[in-house]
């Protein structure tokens, strides 16, 4: 007979799992219903029909939006790593600018998008860069860059200084030691930062909604458009939602282990 506390533990976890999984399950089932049966909550099981998936994947612009989102996320993360990694090293090793700087980085990430969006829009509008992916990349850098840097600071903190010192004695300059030893040694951290940065970019709708239109829309903006067609489009919306959700969820599985170290940055020792 298990102890009541153990029983309670199991119950809590089961309940949590059920409430997490049920929405996904229901959406998945809905995406497999023929269009006229999507709006029938009283039917728990309907024979699967791939019509919605076929429509979304092959007969709509969704693949293009996926490509847009992929492109924006990849470029944003690449720039963020290129700029963020040396900065993270400097912040971790020399505390450049004092202890306040690393929190300034965190604060930058927390800046309400509303503060940045108006001027960003105006600037890009004057440069005639709205409705282009460049605009979204620049906008996404406002939060991906600080997050990636904040992540990497934590990972560099965990790396013993002696590693670079050894490399410098072994014949490298400080900078080549950074390239040849520090960067490869924090590869898991870089991976985690990249995946997390990508997820943030992939998931953003606010900036993309304001800065893109037509062919330059990203996936979340496109998904937001589905509801306007009312009931009959629900099945396609469900399929499109799953398209946006599944890859990120898979990425997240590999990310978990490093996520806490990264989010904690210089603040939480784990």
């Amino acid at each position: 007979m298990p102890r009541p506390a153990t029983l309670l533990t199991g119950l809590v976890v089961l309940l949590a799992l059920a409430s997490v999984l049920f929405p996904f399950l229901w959406i998945a089932l809905a995406s497999l219903r023929p269009p006229h049966l999507v709006a029938r909550p009283d039917l728990l099981w309907v024979a699967p029909d791939p019509a919605n998936w076929r429509a979304v994947l092959f007969e709509s612009d969704v693949p293009r939006y996926i490509l847009n989102s992929l492109l924006v996320g990849t470029v944003t993360v690449a720039v963020a790593l290129l700029v963020g990694a040396p900065a993270a090293y400097s912040l971790s090793r020399w505390r450049t600018g004092g202890a306040g700087t690393r929190f300034a980085i965190l604060a930058a990430e927390m800046m309400p998008p509303a503060v940045v969006i108006v001027p960003l829009f105006l600037i890009l509008w004057h440069l005639q860069l709205t409705n282009s992916l460049v605009a979204v990349v620049l906008a996404h850098l406002t939060f991906v860059l600080p997050v990636v840097t904040w992540f990497l600071v934590g990972f560099v903190d965990d790396l013993p200084r002696e590693l670079e010192e050894q490399a410098m004695i072994d014949g490298h300059t400080r900078f080549t030691a950074f390239l040849r030893v520090v960067l490869p040694a924090i590869r898991p951290g870089i991976g985690a930062a990249a995946v997390f940065g990508f997820v943030l970019s992939w998931n953003d709708m606010f900036y993309a909604l304001v800065l893109t239109g037509g062919a330059s829309r990203t996936l979340p903006v496109a998904i937001a458009g589905y509801w306007t067609f009312r009931g009959i489009e629900m099945g396609k919306m469900a399929a499109a939602i799953l398209v946006a959700v599944v890859p990120v969820t898979l990425a997240a599985f590999f990310l978990q282990k490093h996520l806490v170290r990264g989010l904690g940055g210089g603040a939480v020792k784990t």
């Binding site: 013993p160 010192e165 490399a167 004695i169 072994d170 490298h172």
Partner: peptide
């Protein structure tokens, strides 16, 4: 610079890459 001194060092934590 350290690299120009032609010394080798063994650290307490070994500092293996």
């Amino acid at each position: 610079e350290p690299r120009a001194r032609n010394v080798a060092m063994v650290f307490q934590n070994y500092a293996l890459y």
